[in-house]
Design a protein around this nucleic acid. Structure first.
Length: 532
DNA sequence: CTGGGGACGGGGCCC
DNA sequence: GGGGCCCCGTCCCCA
């Protein structure tokens, strides 16, 4: 029996050794095959690249022959020339191509310096150019096709030169370099091949964006689909010059909504992954006029116009990009960076107001401020309960509020009858809507966005500013029917009427003296009965 | 002269 | 946005 057990043990150990050896062999085979496979792939890629280069050379020759055959049929366009000159603020997403001096034509495989925003890189490009382009003067620009075989550059910058069959289309070159609207109207440059003469066709945004839509799903262009963005017939706020520019968010969260309704929330650290829509300042919807220069980091007012797209896959798979409206910045300075707004004047306060209004109309906001982050999760759970977060500051505030509530009696009671889903993160006070919470929290943060343009005063509420401005205008719309006194406020008139009626509703509990105002009673008690 | 009270203006804040 | 209440400060009157 014991021998049998030893025998089984030996067999088991032998089996284990054999199994390990077999696994090692399999792994070795797999590794070898994988290396061979990779080698083959690399060779195939090289061959593919060489073939593609040959093909492009052939295309170049053909195109050059066409150009030489009919030099007047081609105009070299640069739809980004205006941007490259700085006519637009959004130069980050475009490249200006610098042509080496002394060259009449580009050569194949000639490196070209590509000025892309702040950086400079060397791109392998092939340029189709005609002599007419040179004759067009400095305004003429280069039509550039980036070599796609490199494959690693961000393809949404690439210019699309379509070589599809478009027979029957007459040669059209509508780009007018001197047009004042050049920087606003995007033109699509289309080379129509298969015709006796090369032609460049210019299209406006409509077709460009439509084509962009198509390209989105083929992975050849990574711009966002305007229709999917739900931005109107043209897919963007009806600004004729809509463009997309990269927004270099710093660790900004972006929600990628998918068509199945799931929301994928990711942290976008890649600057190239997030885009926003350039707005025509003259055609911005409500709130978008507050868009400011991103380079200044002025996120709060810009946020409502940001349409952040998902991390764009550069490998060409189908991209699903839905509209995401990023709301994050307005609240941050409003709450945490109040100093940056306190002295900015009245107009900025208006911007705040407009910004708020515009934001509230946008469904499915993605908020990133601490306040909104808390609120969005669960409005009720945002209550920072007394047990965990009540500092002395909170206690003071709450004591004030509770005292106020007690003093106001029925007001507080009736207030509690409503559903107060939105709680102040400072004092846990509940409000019926987010706007009220935000206004209320200004009292904690000291933010007063509404500044008087005639004095140094600033206010947390627009109504307070409006009321204050009667001090400067001298407007007193409320007149006493008993006398000729006039008042700027209705409550002051009502208070004044007590003079005529003799109404003194506030009685001292110590001396039975009566007063017309509660504050009079309080002062009276402080002065005369404080020792009691 | 001083202190209490009234009238009023203005801001804070909530509904 | 407007109404309303509270609070504070200032001015004035008067005992």
């Amino acid at each position: 029996m014991a021998n049998c057990m030893v025998f089984h043990t030996q067999i088991a150990s032998i089996m284990e050794v054999l199994a390990n050896a077999a696994v090692a062999d399999i792994c070795k085979l797999v590794d070898d095959d994988y290396a061979v496979f990779r080698l083959e792939i690399t060779q195939s890629q090289k061959e593919n690249r060489a073939l593609r280069r040959k093909l492009q050379l052939l295309e170049m020759k053909v195109a050059r022959e066409r150009v030489l055959a009919s030099p007047s049929s081609v105009k070299i366009l640069d739809r980004y020339r205006g941007l490259a000159r700085g006519e637009g603020q959004l130069t980050g997403g475009y490249r200006s191509f610098v042509k080496p001096a002394g060259h009449n034509t580009w050569r194949d495989d000639q490196p070209i310096t590509v000025d892309e925003g702040s950086g400079t890189s060397t791109q392998h490009v092939i340029v189709i150019e005609s002599e007419d382009a040179e004759a067009a003067g400095p305004g003429a620009s280069s039509l550039v096709k980036q070599e796609g075989s490199e494959g690693e550059e961000d393809s949404w910058h690439s210019r699309d030169i379509q070589t599809g069959a478009a027979s029957g289309v007459p040669p059209v070159a509508t780009e007018d370099p001197t047009s004042p609207t050049q920087s606003r109207i995007r033109h699509r440059i289309t080379e129509v091949s298969g015709m006796p003469n090369s032609a460049l066709k210019s299209e406006t945004d409509t077709k460009t964006l439509t084509e962009t839509h198509r390209l989105l799903h083929t992975g050849t262009d990574h711009r966002s689909d305007p229709e999917r963005l739900g931005l109107g017939p043209l897919g963007c706020p009806p600004a004729p010059g809509s463009e997309y520019l990269p927004v270099f968010h710093q660790s900004q969260k972006t929600v990628h909504s998918r068509e199945d309704g799931d929301a994928l929330e990711t942290a976008v650290d890649d600057p190239s992954c997030s885009y926003s829509t350039e707005m025509d300042p003259g055609n911005m919807p409500l709130g978008l006029e507050t868009q400011t220069d991103l380079s200044r980091g002025d996120w709060n007012r810009y946020s409502s116009s940001v349409y952040s797209e998902g991390c764009l896959d550069k490998k060409g798979e189908v991209i699903v990009i839905d509209e995401v409206t990023v709301k994050m910045e307005g609240d941050i300075p409003l709450t945490w960076n109040a100093d940056s707004h306190l002295g900015d004047g009245h107009s900025q306060g208006r911007d705040f107001l407009d910004y708020r209004e515009s934001l509230e109309t946008i469904p499915n906001n993605v908020t990133h401020s601490p306040l909104h982050t808390l609120r969005d999760r669960d409005p009720v759970s945002t209550s920072m309960g007394p047990s965990d977060s009540h500092s002395l500051f909170d206690q003071v505030l709450n004591s004030n509020d509770s005292a106020r509530a007690q003093a106001q009696g029925g007001r507080a009671t009736s207030d509690s009858s409503k559903e107060k889903r939105f709680l102040c993160m400072f004092c846990s006070k509940g409000f019926s809507c987010p706007q009220k919470v935000e206004i209320h929290q200004r009292f904690h943060t000291g933010v007063k966005p509404f500044s008087c343009n005639q004095c140094h005063m600033s206010f947390a509420q627009a109504g307070d500013l409006k009321r204050h401005q009667r001090v400067h205008t001298g407007e007193k719309p409320y007149s006493c029917p008993q006398c000729e006194k006039r008042f700027s406020r209705l409550d002051k008139l009502k208070m004044h009427l007590k003079v005529h009626t003799g109404e003194r509703p506030f009685a001292c509990t110590h001396c039975r003296k009566r007063f017309s105002e509660r504050s009079y009673l309080r002062i009276h008690q402080q002065k005369n009965h404080s020792t009691l």
